[in-house]
Write a protein that binds this DNA or RNA. Structure first.
Length: 732
DNA sequence: AACAAGACCATTTTT
DNA sequence: TGGTCTTGTT
C-alpha cells in the first residue's frame, strides 16, 4: 500500500516521530512544532503500516476541543471516520467505560455526573446536615481537598490518619461525601477517573479484554497528566500494548491542579524501551521570539531539554514597554492595536494575555472607550449558566425525582411558595427517615404536615414533576420538544422575563438556545452505553461545556489568561502585567517548584507570538482597590538582551497632549540596562529608611548612575524626590 | 418574597 | 475595587 501521503510534507524529525516503530514512544514536541499534526499522522501511519485496525487504537486528550479536532483531522487525512477507534478526553473515555460496565464498577445504572458546582453544593448540604463548622472547614477547601485526594487516587480510607484535627475533619468529611455520592448515584469528575481505574484493577478479565483490544494508546499533552490519569494509562497499556506520549515538559502549567511533571520526566523509567524524539523546529515564531523563549526557560532546572529553532529569520525584536500605571499600559496596547488594524491586520490576529482575570478589566474598559471590539476567552460556559442548570435539574428530576441535588436546586425556582421553612421540614424528615427529599415531600403532602398553603405548594410541585416524568416517556417527542415542555411547565420563561435589566432577556435567549441544542443533539447508535438520549444529553452537558460562546462573527481582539492561551497562536501578542508579585504571582513564592511553573507559563506566553511580541508592565497598579508598586518581573531580565528592546515612548508612540502625565515620571534610564546591570539597588516598591524622614515607599525613579533620583512616599513626611547619591537611604 | 445593606474575598481551569 | 453571598428589614 502506498503510504507516502502520510509521510510527505513532514520534516525529518516529524517523520521519525510519525514512523517510529510500534513501541513506547515519547515525542517531546516544542511549542509550534506541529504536534497535533504528528499525532494525527502517527495514527494514520499505525493503521496503514502495521495494519492496525482503528478498533485497536485509543487516543486521549484533555479537552473536548482537542478531542474533536483530532477526530476531525484523522478523518480528513484518512478520508473516512476511524470506525471503532476510541478518541476522547480522559473523563469522557472513563465515563464510557463506566456506562458500559456500571455493574462491575459498583454503580447504579442511572448514575449521574456532577460538575464542580454540583459538587460544592453537595458538600455544603452535607456539612449543614452534619452540623460541621464551615468556618473551620470552608466548603471550598473541603472540595479542593477531596479532589486533590482523588487526583492522587486516594479514597477516604486511604487518607493517612493525622493527629491534626483539621485533616481529621477533612477525612471524615470525605467519608460522608463518599457515602452521599454512593447513595445518590453521583460521580464527580475525579470519581470518573478513579472509578474507571478501580474497575480495571478489580476485574482481571475485563482488564485483559481492554489490554488486548488496545494495541496502542496515544496521549496528547502528556505533561499535564495527574497521578490517576497516569495510573489509568499504565494499567490500560499493560505489558503487551504500547504508548505514544506527546508533550512538552516546558509547557507544564497545571501542577496546581494535580498535574505531575514527573510523569513526563520519568516516562522512560516507567515504560520499557522508550524511543524519544524531539521536535524542535518551530513553524510559528520568529527567531527573536524563540531566542527569548529559549533563554527564559533555560533558567529552569530538571528539564528534558529542548531548544526551539526556526529557519524563517529573526524578525523584529520583542518590545518592552514600561507603563506608568495600568491605565497607561492599556492605552499603549490599544495604540499599537489600532496601528496594526490601520495597516490592515485583523483584530482576531491580536491577543492580549494576562496572568489573572482581574487584569482584563482595565483593558476592556479602554477597548470599550476606543470602540474596538474584543472577545474574552474562557468566560462562563454555556451549560454552567444558572438558568440552564435549572432547566437541566428539572430534566434530571423527570428521570429520577429522588435526585436531592436537583430538588434543592429548583424546588422554589421560580418561587412557588415553598420557602426555607418548608424545605427545612423536608430535609429534617428526609434525614430522620432516610428518605429522599422527594419521598419526604410526598409524605408531607399526603399527611399535611405543614400549613395548608405550604402543603398545597408542595403538592403542585409534585404534580409538576410527575407531569414532566410522563412527558419524557412519550417516545414521539424529540429531545428539543422535551426541553420545550419542561421549560414551559416550570414557567421558567416568564420567571426570567420579569427579571430586570438585560440579564433576564439573555437568560430567556439561553433557554431557547438550550432547546435548539437539545433538538440538534444526535444520539449516535454506537453509544449503546446510554439508556436514553436524554441521559446522554445530560452527561454531555456536564462533560462538554459547550462552545465558549456562539460568538458573533465580528472581528475582535482576543483577551485571555496565559493558561487559556496554551495551544493557540497569534501574529501579534501582548504579554501584560509582567511584574513581580503578579507574574510570577506572589502566591508562587512559598512552595518549591511553583516559580518554575510560572516561568513555564511565561514560556507558553512568549511562544504564542508569531510575528511580534510586546511585553508590558506598569510601575504602579491598582488592583483589588489598592495601589501597588511592583518591580518589573524577573522574567524580563531572564530574556537575552539581544532580542528585546525597550519602547521609548516619545519617539514611537504619539500620545494625546491632554493626557496628564509629567514626562519626569518616566524613567529616562533604560529599564533593561538597569535591570541587567543594576546601577542602584533600589527599585520601585521597596521600603526604605531615611535618617531624617523615616520609613517610606519608593514610588518612582529618574536618571541613571550618580544622577539617579528616586521619589519616596514617606509614611510621615509625604512624598519627596531624593538624589540617591546623597540621600542615605537604606533598603528595608 | 422582595429588596437593601453588609460581609467577605479575589491566581490560573478542564472535566 | 466590585462581584457574590448572607443577613436583616419591610
Amino acid at each position: 500500500m502506498d503510504v507516502s501521503f502520510i509521510l510527505d510534507d513532514l520534516n525529518d524529525k516529524q517523520r521519525d516521530a510519525v514512523a517510529a516503530p510500534l513501541q513506547n514512544t515519547l515525542i517531546l514536541a516544542g511549542a509550534g512544532s506541529g504536534k497535533t499534526r504528528v499525532l494525527v499522522h502517527r495514527i494514520a501511519w499505525l493503521m496503514h503500516a502495521y495494519e492496525l485496525s482503528p478498533y485497536s487504537l485509543l487516543a486521549v486528550t484533555f479537552t473536548n476541543k482537542a478531542a474533536k479536532e483530532m477526530q476531525a483531522r484523522i478523518e480528513q487525512l484518512v478520508g473516512v471516520p476511524p470506525q471503532g477507534m476510541w478518541v476522547g478526553t480522559f473523563h469522557g473515555l472513563a465515563h464510557r467505560l463506566l456506562r458500559a460496565h456500571w455493574r462491575d464498577a459498583g454503580l447504579k445504572e442511572n448514575f449521574q455526573i456532577m460538575d464542580s458546582d454540583d459538587q460544592l453544593r453537595l458538600i455544603k448540604r452535607l456539612m449543614k446536615a452534619f452540623n460541621i463548622d464551615d468556618t473551620r472547614w470552608p466548603p471550598k477547601q473541603v472540595c479542593w481537598f477531596i479532589n486533590a485526594q482523588k487526583d492522587e487516587g486516594r479514597r477516604a480510607a486511604h487518607v493517612v490518619d493525622s493527629h491534626d484535627p483539621f485533616t481529621r475533619g477533612m477525612k471524615e468529611l470525605y467519608f460522608h461525601y463518599e457515602e452521599a455520592c454512593e447513595q445518590g448515584g453521583l460521580l464527580d469528575f475525579g470519581e470518573l477517573l478513579l472509578r474507571a481505574h478501580e474497575l480495571l484493577l478489580g476485574n482481571p478479565s475485563l482488564l485483559r479484554h481492554y489490554q488486548e483490544r488496545f494495541a496502542h494508546v496515544l496521549v496528547d499533552e502528556f505533561q499535564d497528566t495527574n497521578s490517576i490519569q497516569y495510573a489509568w494509562l499504565r494499567i490500560l497499556v499493560g505489558n503487551q500494548g504500547s504508548i505514544t506520549a506527546v508533550g512538552d515538559d516546558d509547557q507544564s502549567i497545571y501542577g496546581w491542579r494535580g498535574a505531575k511533571i514527573e510523569n513526563i520526566h520519568n516516562f522512560s523509567k516507567h515504560f520499557p524501551d522508550v524511543n524519544t524524539i524531539r521536535l524542535e523546529q518551530n513553524y510559528r515564531s520568529t527567531g527573536h521570539i524563540l531566542k527569548a523563549a529559549n533563554g527564559l526557560i533555560s533558567n529552569n532546572d530538571d528539564r528534558l531539554g529542548k531548544e526551539l529553532w526556526t529557519d524563517s529569520g529573526e524578525g523584529e525584536p520583542i518590545s518592552l514597554y514600561a507603563g506608568f500605571n495600568e491605565q497607561d499600559e492599556a492605552r499603549f496596547i490599544i495604540d499599537i492595536i489600532k496601528k496594526w488594524r490601520d495597516k490592515g491586520s485583523n483584530l482576531s490576529d491580536m491577543a492580549v494575555l494576562y496572568r489573572s482575570n482581574a487584569q482584563s478589566r482595565v483593558v476592556e474598559e479602554c477597548l470599550v472607550r476606543e470602540q474596538v471590539p474584543y472577545r474574552i476567552y474562557g468566560g462562563h460556559r454555556f451549560y454552567d449558566r444558572l438558568e440552564i442548570k435549572n432547566a437541566l435539574a428539572y430534566a434530571r428530576l423527570a428521570i429520577d425525582p429522588n435526585d436531592d441535588g436537583a430538588i434543592e436546586r429548583v424546588i422554589n425556582v421560580p418561587p412557588r411558595g415553598i420557602g426555607e421553612r418548608s424545605i427545612g421540614t423536608l430535609r429534617e424528615l428526609a434525614r430522620d427517615q432516610g428518605y429522599s427529599l422527594w419521598k419526604a415531600a410526598q409524605v408531607v403532602a399526603q399527611q399535611g404536615l405543614l400549613p395548608a398553603r405550604a402543603t398545597n405548594a408542595i403538592r403542585s410541585f409534585l404534580e409538576l414533576i410527575e407531569g414532566m416524568s410522563s412527558c419524557i416517556q412519550q417516545p414521539e417527542l424529540g429531545l428539543g420538544d422535551v426541553f420545550e415542555q419542561i421549560i414551559q411547565e416550570a414557567g421558567l420563561i416568564p420567571f426570567h422575563e420579569k427579571e430586570k435589566g438585560e440579564k433576564g432577556e439573555a437568560r430567556v435567549e439561553n433557554l431557547k438556545e438550550l432547546v435548539s441544542a437539545a433538538s440538534g443533539f444526535s444520539w449516535s447508535s454506537d453509544d449503546e452505553e446510554f439508556s436514553s438520549p436524554l441521559m446522554a444529553f445530560l452527561d454531555k452537558a456536564v462533560l462538554d461545556a459547550g462552545e465558549a460562546q456562539a460568538d458573533e462573527y465580528q472581528d475582535s481582539i482576543q483577551l485571555m489568561t496565559l493558561h487559556a492561551a496554551k495551544g493557540l497562536e497569534f501574529p501579534l501578542v501582548f504579554l501584560t502585567g509582567v511584574e513581580e508579585n503578579l507574574f510570577p504571582s506572589k502566591m508562587s513564592f512559598e512552595e518549591p517548584g511553583r516559580l518554575e511553573e510560572e516561568r513555564r507559563l511565561c514560556y507558553v506566553g512568549i511562544t504564542r507570538a508569531m510575528e511580534k511580541l510586546y511585553i508590558t508592565y506598569a510601575e504602579s497598579r491598582r488592583l483589588y482597590g489598592s495601589e501597588s508598586f511592583n518591580s518589573p518581573s524577573r522574567f524580563i531580565s531572564e530574556i537575552p538582551t539581544g532580542c528585546i528592546e525597550e519602547v521609548r515612548l516619545r519617539s514611537q508612540v504619539s500620545r494625546p497632549v491632554s493626557m496628564q502625565r509629567p514626562t519626569v515620571n518616566r524613567p529616562t534610564s533604560s529599564v533593561l540596562s538597569s535591570m541587567q546591570k543594576p546601577v542602584i539597588d533600589i527599585s520601585m516598591g521597596d521600603r526604605v529608611n531615611h535618617p531624617v524622614f523615616g520609613e517610606g515607599l519608593v514610588i518612582n525613579s529618574e536618571g541613571q548612575g550618580p544622577q539617579t533620583r528616586v521619589q519616596v512616599n514617606f509614611d510621615d513626611e509625604g512624598t519627596k524626590w531624593l538624589v540617591l547619591a546623597f540621600a542615605k537611604l537604606e533598603v528595608l
